[in-house]
């Protein structure tokens, strides 16, 4: 066991350049994957934020009795899609309009009659903020006699749907492609290490080392390289994140970094590629000599 680790560490010491190079290669391959993950995570975050604004508004006919509205509110709140229902009275609507629509403040100031209708603002639950569910809720709302009109920004919800689908498919494809490229590059890197030490391997075999014995230090070495490469990739990603965070003041909500489970997954991925790559390269090498 100590021999295993000693031999693996010796490999780093004896070929510092090649080891450094392969760690860097692994690091940058994983960095590409990490960058992509960063973009994907932030895109999802942004989509979620936009989603929060999905809202169905039912405008009520003037003179609807408050009891009827209260009853309906309760019914609607019980819809499986619905998270919250808020009643906005005519006065409240006017107050908001005055506050939000600065340009029209004067126009709204001296009104004799409030032209704005009362409404029910309906927030949907997570996972229901897509075109189909929103439309279904809107349809049901129209069924109430006192509902004059239902608005929910259908077009952009549908756009959001499309964006979500595209982001999902593209994300998965590119993510897998990046990961595959990383696996290949890391595999090649490790293969070079093995070839560079072909002579040593042949001498080990000559003096009676078993394949398992020969493989051991390579596997440890590969895992260590994967580990260091993974950590390097995280450092690079974090650096990039800091750089962009500085620039992203203009963006509405800033950007987020990967969370620790995702980072852990990245490192584990690196270690596994290191291990798998070594296993394959050494295995193939041992079979061919």
């Amino acid at each position: 066991m100590s021999l295993l680790v000693r031999e693996a560490l010796l490999a780093f010491r004896r070929a510092p350049l090649l080891s450094g190079l392969s760690i860097t290669t692994i690091g940058f391959s994983l960095y590409a994957v990490g960058l992509f993950a960063l973009v994907a995570v932030n895109l999802r975050e942004a989509l979620r934020e936009v989603e929060q604004r999905v809202e169905v508004v039912a405008y009520l006919l003037r003179g609807t009795p408050p009891e009827a509205v209260a009853q309906a509110s309760q019914d609607i709140a019980a819809f499986p899609e619905v998270a919250r229902v808020a009643f906005i009275s005519e006065d409240e609507a006017l107050r908001r309009a005055r506050q939000e629509l600065v340009e029209f403040r004067d126009a709204y100031r001296d009104l004799k009659v409030n032209p704005l209708p009362a409404s029910l603002e309906i927030q949907l639950k997570d996972g229901y903020r897509d075109g189909a569910h929103t439309a279904a809720v809107a349809e049901r709302l129209r069924g109430y006699g006192f509902v004059d009109d239902v608005r929910y920004g259908r077009e952009w919800i549908e756009k959001l749907d499309r964006l979500r689908n595209i982001a999902g498919v593209v994300g998965l494809t590119i993510g897998l492609a990046f990961a595959a490229v990383a696996v290949v590059i890391i595999g090649v890197t490790i293969r070079i290490t093995v070839l560079q030490r072909a002579r040593e391997i042949s001498i080990m075999r000559l003096v009676g080392a078993t394949n398992g014995f020969i493989r051991g230090p390579f596997l440890v070495e590969g895992m260590l390289k994967g580990l260091f490469g993974g950590l390097l990739a995280i450092a690079l990603c974090y650096g990039t994140y800091l750089l962009f965070r500085g620039q992203a003041e203009l963006a509405t909500s800033g950007i987020v970094f990967l969370r620790s489970p995702q980072l852990g997954l990245g490192v584990v991925f690196g270690v596994l590629i290191g291990l798998g790559g070594s296993l394959v390269s050494v295995g193939r090498h041992l079979r061919n000599v």
Partner: peptide, 10 residues
């Protein structure tokens, strides 16, 4: 066998 080769070499 691959198993016996190291034993022979030793």
């Amino acid at each position: 066998s691959p198993h016996d080769l190291p034993r022979l070499r030793r």
